[in-house]
Design a protein around this nucleic acid. Structure first.
Length: 326
DNA sequence: AAGCTATACAACCGCACTACA
DNA sequence: ATGTAGTGCGGTTGTATAGCT
């Protein structure tokens, strides 16, 4: 059960590999296989520990490694899988042939994570990074979104796409926050007082309840029509506690109670089970299917870049809440 | 042009686990 | 039952380089 002391030896070289070292390692492995990693450095004439050789080979020199930029599909797959698996980089790598866990981890930390944060998505939870002050800050956009009738014209278009549902869900959740915090008018008024231009109209506060109810009604009726949680209840960052709960009350934007957390945990387990049964191979086609079936909310939004007010909502919400982010 | 800062990525560290003697 | 070797894995660090002042 002990730990390997392989790297404890002194005198072994550390740091970046030289092309000569790479050549030695490649030549040796091609000729003899890696066999025992511990014995390899000596046999190959390398002044490195076996662990270092193994890492260099598996992360960089292996012939089946796919170098170069990640494709949009790969990026999408990573996001989807990360929302289900968390930081299980090796598991994620199993779904991306030719990519290593280290490469995916680095790409996540340097690109995707930042991207999600800029969109107002918490890269850990895959939920919107909002609190009520953010929602308030985004209210100008919400007001614009009150023009929502086009989107929600159910008489004309009963076949709602995922994008519409995602938008409805976002609004729905924001409105819930408003409703929950409507009593906290002191905070609202403070905000209002300090930001006279925030709402752009002095009568905003008086109109707020009716605006909220209107949107609430619309999104509420939408959820009834859809007759299922608006998005995959796990993949969507705005989580739905349970179907019946969703129909009877506004779902919480971010679960706060232990009970909600336990439901979410159950949901996560269920989704992982589904993933295990539907996507347990590493072949690209299954990954592709997964990607399409579980397109996350953030990308639904992203796909609709033309809907600028939605992007504005996300961006402003994000910028108001996390002034310290990159 | 020089210095500073941020970013990206390769490599390392250390814990956990399995297999085996 | 116990200790060691081997390996997997996630987190962290180091370094080269691009971008900015």
């Amino acid at each position: 059960m002990g730990r390997s002391p392989c790297c404890d030896e002194s005198g072994l070289k550390k740091g970046p590999w030289t092309p000569e070292e790479d050549q030695k390692l490649i030549y040796h492995i091609r000729k003899h296989g890696h066999g025992s990693w511990r014995a390899l450095p000596k046999q190959a004439g390398l002044n490195r520990c076996g662990k270092s050789c193994r890492l260099r080979w598996t992360n960089y020199l292996r012939p089946d490694i796919k170098r170069g930029n990640f494709t949009a599909e790969e990026e999408q797959t990573i996001i989807n899988l990360h929302s289900l698996l968390g930081n299980k980089w090796s598991s994620i790598a199993g779904h991306l042939p030719g990519r290593t866990d280290n490469e995916i981890k680095n790409y996540w930390n340097t690109h995707i994570r930042k991207k999600l944060m800029q969109m107002g998505i918490d890269p850990v939870t895959h939920r919107p990074r909002t609190d009520h002050l953010n929602v308030l800050a985004a209210l100008p956009q919400l007001l614009a979104a009150a023009n929502f009738n086009n989107l929600l014209n159910l008489n004309q278009n009963i076949q709602l796409d995922a994008t519409s549902v995602a938008k409805a869900q976002l609004l729905h959740s924001m409105i819930q926050v408003l409703s929950n915090n409507n009593n906290a008018s002191s905070s609202l008024e403070t905000h209002h007082t300090n930001n006279n231009n925030l709402f752009g109209q002095s009568s905003f506060l008086e109109n707020l309840p009716s605006i909220g109810e209107n949107l609430y009604d619309q999104t509420q009726s939408l959820s009834h029509i859809v007759n299922q949680p608006p998005l995959d209840s796990f993949t969507s960052p705005i989580r739905v506690v349970a179907h019946q709960d969703y129909q009877n009350s506004i779902p919480p934007l971010i679960s706060a109670s232990p009970d909600d957390e336990s439901k979410q945990t159950q949901m996560m387990a269920k989704n992982k089970e589904v993933l295990r049964h539907t996507d347990h191979t590493s072949n690209p086609s299954s990954t592709s299917t997964f990607t399409q079936d579980h397109q996350p909310w953030c990308d639904v939004i992203d796909d609709e870049a033309s809907d600028s007010y939605w992007k504005d909502i996300i961006e402003q919400t994000c910028s108001e809440t996390w002034p310290f982010r990159e």
